[in-house]
Every structure is written in C-alpha cells, then in structure tokens.
Design a protein around this nucleic acid. Structure first.
Lengths: 203, 203
DNA sequence: AGTCATTTGTGACTACAATCAATATTGTAG
DNA sequence: CTACAATATTGATTGTAGTCACAAATGACT
C-alpha cells in the first residue's frame, strides 16, 4: 500500500473529476460549445482551479484521450489475429485508432491538432507512441525472421515510416477526404504496400 | 486588360494591406502578442472589417504563408540541380520547405497547425500541394525512364508517401526534436531511402 | 442627376479563456 | 494544541477574439 498524503489524494481526485466532467461535456455539446466555466462547475472546483490542472482548454482534450489511447494500444495487440502477413498485421493495428477517433470526429480533430505542438503533453504522448512503435518493431522483426522482410533493413526507420503514413491518412480522413472504410482499405493498405515493396527494380 | 469594378479593386487592396500588416506585426512581435486590433489599425480598417476578410486570427497566418509557399515551390523546381539521383532530387526539393519554415519557427508552427483542418483555406492549400505532388511525380517518372525505379510502381502512391514522410519529419523538427541540418540530412534522407528500397528481400 | 438595392464597412459590445491577489487548507515542529 | 510555513484554491477581474445592428459606399436603372 502506497502511503499517500491528503494533498496528493485530493489532487488526484480533482484531476479525475476534471477529466470526467470534460469528457461528459465534450460528448454532450462538443468542444467549442463547452465553456471552461461549465467544466469547472461540473467538476466542483473554482474556475481558476481548473487551470492549475491543465494549461489551457485544449489540454482537457488531451486529458480525455490519454486513457482511451492507452486502452486502444493495449487492445490492438491483444486482439491481433495470428498468422497474418506483415501488411495485414499493420493495417489491423492502425485500424483500431481509426475506430477510436471515429467515435467523435470533431473531438478527434481537436486532439490531433493540439497534440502536434503542445508543450506539456508531448512527453506523455510520445511515451505512448514510442511504446506502440516498439511493439510494431517487434512484429516487423518477426516478419523478418520468417523471411517476409529482408535482412539488411533498418527496422526502426521502417516503423517510423509506417507511422508517418498512418498519420497522413488519418489527417486526410479527419478532414473529410474519404470515409472510414476507404481510409483503412484502399488508402492505408496501399500506402503500406508501397512502403513494403519500395520503388527499386527487382534486378 | 481585365475590367475591374471599384468594389473589386477596393477589396483586393484591403486584402493586400491586411496581409502586409499581419506579416509585419507577426515578424515584429510574434503571433500571440499581435492583436487583431493592431492588425486592423495598421491595415487602416475597422476591427470588424478584418473578419470579413479572414474567418479568424489564425487565417491571417495562412494568408501570410500562401505567397511564400507559392514562391518556394516555384523556386524549388527552377533551382533543382541536374543529374541528381531520385533520392537527392527529393531531398533537395523538400529541403526548400524546411528553409522557408526555418525563417520563423513559431509562425511556422501556427501555420502547420492551422492548415491541418482549416475549412476555408484547405482548397487553396491543396491546390498548391497537388501542384507540387504532380511536379514530383514527373521527376519520379523520369527516374523510372532511366531505370532507377521499377516499371510496375504506382507513382502517385509513392509521391504521396514521400510527402507523408516529409510532413512527419517537418512536425518533429518544428517540435524541437532536432536541428534543421539533422532534419534534412539523416532524418529525411533515411526515411526516403527506406521508402525507395522497401522491405522485401531481393529474391 | 436622382432613386433604390446590394454590397461593404464600422466600432461598440459580448462571451469567454486565462490570470492573480487574496483566502483557505494541509503539513510540520515545538 | 498552537503557531507558522508551504501549498492549494478561489472567483472577481482582465484582455482580446469575434459578432452584429446600423451606416456608408457602390452600382444599376430611369
């Protein structure tokens, strides 16, 4: 049992209430229409207190998604079907994020946008992303072991490339360029296939 | 000579004054510290009038960069050295954008962030991006003609992949992950090389 | 030129994110 | 238990982006 001071416990409870209040209001009324005053009220804290816990209104969205992203990453690997090709594995893994963001596209836009250059949260977010990348790298190494991938390949570079391709398609999709199904199926799959195949002639 | 009404001329002059005023103030004081009131004053218009020309303060940044991006794209292809390998050509082309954004990194961050999901400006911006992608595709086809690239390859898919890789490295760089030189040289080059080489074993 | 309709411009006003000086709560040492 | 320091909380206040009811400018038509 971890010894925890009253202060520590109060702080954690407040943060939890803030996260819960923000989630609820964003769901009900959307990000724009939710005021920080309303979040503070629902979380039963003063308007000023809110900003001791988050740097700005946008950070509330990061707070809301943090948990969901954690769960999505975990579930993605747990439910990953066996015996897929590398391409199918990668498509499956990233598809889970599309499904998460599909639950509330307006909010997902705010999240992706704020995540880009947000100071305070970048550390936490990149911890999650790095964990995901490492897990992916493991899968690619397995594909290498069974001969799907060449020996000399820089795995961590390839991993980052796959993530970059996913990210570009995610943002196009969130901009309304195409449907969820299209995003995953022709677009993500083709982009990954192109990365896997490369451009060189088969000498 | 295009016949132009007085209305049309007034509007264009005002827009030009707004663009100029915004650029000057963003340079001098940065984005945050510049008020829309100050922009309106310098452009010699009412505070309300500003918002007939741009939807919000962020759109001023898009306005400021629009011209610069146009010129950067044009210059990139004009100054592209002859007889480079495909990889060197691509690195050269994208490097020009890094140099543009390097002139004012804070402002570049705002630009890249706002561009993501901005309604009104997406059309204009994607016109520019599509033009750039087409020019790139032409270069890749030339590489294909000289045997650097395999015949069956989906060129427009590959083109979009290169852009996605550039974009990911651009945003990492703007987040302060590494220096300008590092961004272009190890990072962009390696990412592009990985896309060109692919992952498959050379049978 | 004079009348009217349509487009463009204006700045006082509103709403709200974020701040900060004042207050309350919790921890600690005697 | 008391006194005091350290930390956390508060809501009135502020600065500013963006709105809107009204005013001015422009163009079209007779």
């Amino acid at each position: 049992m971890v010894q925890q001071s009253l202060r520590e416990r109060n702080k954690q409870e407040k943060l939890a209430r803030i996260q819960q209040a923000a989630r609820q209001l964003f769901e009900e009324k959307g990000f724009e229409a939710t005021t920080t005053y309303a979040v503070a009220e629902l979380a039963q804290i003063g308007t000023g207190t809110l900003f001791l816990y988050v740097k700005d209104k946008q950070e509330l969205v990061l707070l809301v998604y943090h948990q969901a992203i954690e769960e999505t990453i975990e579930q993605a690997f747990v439910t990953l079907p066996a015996d897929l090709t590398l391409l199918d594995e990668l498509v499956y893994l990233f598809e889970q994020f599309f499904r998460l963001y599909n639950q509330n596209i307006e909010l997902a836009r705010v999240y992706i946008k704020e995540l880009l250059f947000h100071e305070g949260y970048r550390a936490q977010a990149s911890r999650q992303i790095n964990y995901f990348l490492e897990q992916m790298a493991t899968r690619i190494k397995e594909a290498q072991a069974r001969g799907e991938v060449a020996q000399g390949v820089d795995i961590s570079q390839a991993t980052r490339n796959f993530f970059a391709l996913y990210y570009a398609i995610l943002t196009s999709w969130l901009s309304g360029a195409f449907s969820l199904e299209e995003a995953v199926n022709p677009h993500l799959r083709r982009a990954f296939a192109s990365q896997i195949n490369g451009l060189l002639p088969r000498s």
